[in-house]
Amino acid sequence: MEHTAVSKYTISFGLSLALSSVLNALLVVAKEKSQVVTAGMQKITGHQWVTHVAIILILFVLLGWLFARANHGQGPKLAVNRLTGIVVAGIVAGGLIITGFYWVAD
């Protein structure tokens, strides 16, 4: 018989991956559009890109952990095929925002 269940972390960190990818792209836009944001990020670690990476990695772990605690600790209920669609959509959206932004900016 075919199994369709996956671990709660597969779902929670998959959702976190999709969301973090989009947030990564939005942070790029915020950083490039606002000197204040860039200067603030520069101040935190000494390099704006290092701060950017740290923010996104912390968000990824935090969101994955929070999603896993949802639904009384069982994690979100979601079909795996739907999760796959969300993950791919998040990655494509993030990639398009970043590429499109620099394409227009250059």
Partner: peptide, 8 residues
């Protein structure tokens, strides 16, 4: 055993 996980 899990085709959907494989696809992911």
């Amino acid at each position: 055993a899990n085709q959907e996980a494989r696809r992911l």
